[in-house]
């Protein structure tokens, strides 16, 4: 999954003089206030931090409240989804017009029917709503499925993502993991088939497949049968 990065940050925490006896606590509190909020300076949502106080000496701010400036060095885990990044999330709701996903357990994402590629068709099977692929019978998205999708936009205030399932490398992660290579291979094969008619052979391709994984072979064989029928 993309959209996660670790940044090294040099920070200054302004500690209230009343907290002078518990500076580390005050610093952690200050950093915790950054969590799960979008921060423009870091260009991302702070998910975690690992902080070290740089200096035992701190400058005192002149003025009415003598806050003191504690210099920190922190490693920040940031979440900053940008358009076209591929994210992963768990489906929590399906409707005829949308798929709702939660990313990393806190950010909600939605894909509306415009952004769900034609390949997926909404249907109800055994009382369960699902989006199923027209081309790959086993490529099914239902509540609980983890899917990969691409980012269209990100609302920084509420951390809401608008996503898309248009790119072909998006969809159910479980299926993609097993078949992504296959898909590309099938794509290749279909082009090869095109070439076959021009007199080339597919045997090389098959021997390649055997050397890979027995599971994949089975499925690819099945598909081949299906394709042929």
């Amino acid at each position: 999954m993309e959209g996660l990065k670790v940044s090294d940050a040099n920070l200054v925490a302004y500690v209230n003089p009343s907290k002078s006896t518990k500076v580390p606590q005050a610093v952690l509190r200050e950093l915790s206030s950054l969590l799960f909020k979008f921060n423009e300076t870091f260009d991302g949502v702070v998910l975690a931090y690992d902080v070290q106080i740089q200096d035992k000496v701190a400058k005192i701010l002149p003025g009415l409240h003598p806050y003191f400036c504690v210099r920190l060095e922190a490693k920040l885990l940031l979440f900053s989804p940008k358009p076209n990044m591929l994210l992963e999330g768990k489906v929590v709701k399906l409707t005829q017009t949308s798929i709702h996903v939660i990313v990393l357990g806190f950010s909600s994402a939605v894909m509306t029917d415009e952004d769900i590629r034609e390949e997926f068709r909404y249907k109800t099977k055994h009382g369960e709503e699902q989006y199923a692929s027209r081309f790959h019978k086993r490529h099914v998205i239902k509540v609980g499925t983890t899917i990969r999708f691409s980012v269209k936009s990100f609302d920084e205030e509420i951390l809401h993502i608008s996503g898309s399932l248009v790119p072909t490398n998006t969809g159910s992660i479980g299926w993609l993991a097993k078949h992504m290579e296959d898909v590309s291979r099938i794509d290749r094969r279909s082009t090869k088939r095109g070439r076959e008619s021009e007199g080339e052979s597919v045997i090389v391709e098959h021997s390649e497949a055997y050397s890979l994984h027995s599971d994949q072979i089975r499925t690819s064989k099945k598909r081949k049968i299906k394709d042929e029928s």
């Binding site: 409707t95 949308s98 709702h100 939605v110 205030e157 509420i158 809401h160 608008s162």
Partner: peptide, 12 residues
């Protein structure tokens, strides 16, 4: 519920 889930702007 659909509104809240569809767009971050509607949640509050």
């Amino acid at each position: 519920i659909s509104l809240a889930a569809s767009n971050g702007k509607h949640v509050s």
